[in-house]
Design a protein around this nucleic acid. Sequence first.
DNA 1: TTGTAAGCGTTATCAA
DNA 2: TTGATAACGCTTACAA
Lengths: 387, 387
Amino acid sequence: MTTGAKGPREVRARGGVTMHDVAALAGVSFKTVSNVLNDYPHIRPTTRARVEAAIAELGYQVNASARNLRRGRTGVIGLALPGLAEPYFGELADTVVRVAETRGVTVLVEHTAGERAKELDVLTSARRSLTDGLLLSPLAVTAEDLRELRPTSPLVLLGERVFGVGLDHVTMANVEGARLATRLLLDRGAHRIAVVGAPGAPGEPEPLGPLTELTGLAELAALARGAGVPDGELGSARPLTTTTARLRLAGYLHALVEAGLEPDPALLLPTGDWHRTSGAAAMDRALAVGLEVDAVLGLNDSVALGALHALQLAGVDVPGRVQVVGFDDTIDGAFATPALTSVSPGREVIASSAVDLLLRRIEGVEQAPRLVVAPVRVEERGSTRRA
Amino acid sequence: MTTGAKGPREVRARGGVTMHDVAALAGVSFKTVSNVLNDYPHIRPTTRARVEAAIAELGYQVNASARNLRRGRTGVIGLALPGLAEPYFGELADTVVRVAETRGVTVLVEHTAGERAKELDVLTSARRSLTDGLLLSPLAVTAEDLRELRPTSPLVLLGERVFGVGLDHVTMANVEGARLATRLLLDRGAHRIAVVGAPGAPGEPEPLGPLTELTGLAELAALARGAGVPDGELGSARPLTTTTARLRLAGYLHALVEAGLEPDPALLLPTGDWHRTSGAAAMDRALAVGLEVDAVLGLNDSVALGALHALQLAGVDVPGRVQVVGFDDTIDGAFATPALTSVSPGREVIASSAVDLLLRRIEGVEQAPRLVVAPVRVEERGSTRRA
DNA sequence: TTGTAAGCGTTATCAA
DNA sequence: TTGATAACGCTTACAA
């Protein structure tokens, strides 16, 4: 059935220019068009030019659905994060998207709010069939869940939750980062370093017990090297702030122990969550009870910035009387006044490792599950006193 | 090559269970499986049950590429925003994703950083062929650009930039919102209301000239009703903060004029950008020069929160001595201390209007371009004095 | 109520 | 160096 002569150009509904249209205009077979598009090596330059001209003239774009169907790939990967509003995750998403672009894949960002239901949904929903694989930063889902689900498509985990499921995993050297930050503060003359965002509920810090058990130097050193993270104790189902907080706290304790200092539980200031206002509130409480402090280690930039604000509010000079260090090296911190010294988590490394691990799995490479621990370094800025 | 028996049902590479496999297991034709999947009405319950059991057992998921190819749709829409890190956009993205879910489409969030190059890229890149249409919140791209590009797939614009291109457009009642907020402050006894985040560079407010021209009550009333936004003057290529700032400032002036008050240019505090720290800095400067102020209208929540912090830092009681109102009703504001009174932009309305307009275009409905202006209301909280 | 046949726009195989 | 031809897995007529 002729749909009526459609002039040479006459674009069909929904921009439906096909390879056949291009081929007709270029005077070649449609397969040649395909070859040009796929950088098939043996094409006469003039042919290629004609095809490219036709493509440009018609504004042809490949039909992704058809290509995907044929290739058995979508060229899309999922990235599921607890929330983009938190600066760290927002910036991580950004980095992942950029890295993915250089690898020729696009990223479908999903958002779990850290809720188990949403995390499970992300793993199972029909959206998965739209993607070739998933990067998941789990907060609530358990190792059990993951084992039972036996995820149908390639999966790489991010963060410090849920280990030992036989999946690729990318995390950062949390312990080492906190250790470096603490050491920097000690080097700059600090003796009483408060930890804002420590595990526990506001006002009632988690007992140091299980943590000091971890402070055996050998064990901590292993953690710091990123040699692996004990499952169980550290990997069970607790909110992000708890798990990550414990690792970072361990680094802090490690640095103190190394320096021959006795940790003072009074210096551990829990915040419940890791938002700015909680950091400010914790610092306020500490100041109110006259806690003696000459430095603050915020376990992420948000609480560090909150503490910074509270200190300034109280007329305390930063970094003159109290130095402040954060963790995550977010843009907010870099632009605060004074600019926040912070542990930089190597977002680039995290993002590219994660994407590449996933792509390798998608390509069907069989290899033992890998754990990548991104190295950290301290970005020193105005909130600490340069030597 | 046999890859070895793999449990009951030998799953092909990449979860490749097809409708045929399901049909075989259920003992029906593959078309029946398709019918079940597509909620075709006339299916015997027992047949349906058998098919569903087989689907569950095999863990079958439809192949999105094949379905899309056949349907000529991808079931994905793009959402391109300047940045997710800014609370307003982050929360808007969230709302759009949720709304889209109820409409059965997924959202590919893209990020333009407000740069023209990235905005053009978003409009033209191959990723577009992955989506059925695009929601774009343009910052840098001009009406000219859009006209020349004659975008290939359906496009709906968000925000207060680039009008009059013959495209569907969703925005909010900026003028009305600022007017309501200002009136609330006046009602609560304020006389000297500073505007933090006003157009202009920090320290040198944009002259009121072109704005006061706009304060003819009739024109402002039209704006406030959302009857349309003048192109040209307000719609040309300026950063978001400028365009939006001018609309909100117009609402502020409108309220003053209504109340018979003379606007004082000294009360306009520009911030350059709309981040927290800039809001704090502007407030600091104002306090330093002894500006007499009994209320603050922040043109977004971030600058309002910054100002709030600066006030507290200076020992000024909020809302006792100075009341503060923000704009956008973000979560950060709601959780600040005191909680921030803020203009709520009807994110739900914005999101659902935008998605629905786009879906209608995707379905090929022909209609004149629509302008939807989401209504606003003021969420009153602790940063103002309840009557 | 269920089944058959055709074709969506590509890429892969193989022949020319 | 190019061109037929056959899938890829699904939905949409239409037939049974």
